[in-house]
């Protein structure tokens, strides 16, 4: 009787554990890469940034840009966001579809 209980619970339990492990890994990986992605950005204030993507952003991405700061537009593989919120920027940097984030030099 005892083996049958264990085998019946095994699948959902293993799945749950596997799911938790995968999510934990993704989260950790996200944080590690986000630190690297944001290496060159000064996060003490509200930095202006340039985000590079390997694809044309869709509404899904534009909404996220607008959550981060004042989205200025997209051209030649890059999006400019002014006055970005550091916390939101960190969150964005964790996403794997972000190419690179660099400080934006406002041309004078």
């Amino acid at each position: 009787m005892i083996p049958s209980i264990h085998s019946a619970w095994r699948t959902p339990l293993m799945t749950l554990i596997g799911l938790v492990v995968v999510l934990a890994l993704v989260a950790v990986l996200g944080r590690v890469t986000s630190a690297r992605t944001l290496a060159g950005i000064d996060l003490t204030g509200r930095p202006d940034v340039v985000i590079s993507l390997s694809f044309t952003p869709e509404r899904f991405h534009l909404e996220k840009f607008q959550d981060v700061g004042r989205y200025q537009g997209w051209s030649e593989g890059q999006a400019v966001i002014l006055s970005s919120d550091p916390e939101e920027l960190r969150g964005l940097a964790r996403s794997y579809w972000i190419g690179a984030i660099e400080p934006h030099e406002v041309a004078q």
Binding site: I5, A8, P12, T15
Partner: peptide, 18 residues
């Protein structure tokens, strides 16, 4: 499929079996 196979059915099996 995942919800049914990996959660619902095993839970059902476990309770009914026991």
């Amino acid at each position: 499929l995942l919800i049914d196979r990996l959660l619902l059915r095993p839970v059902e099996q476990a309770t009914i079996v026991r």
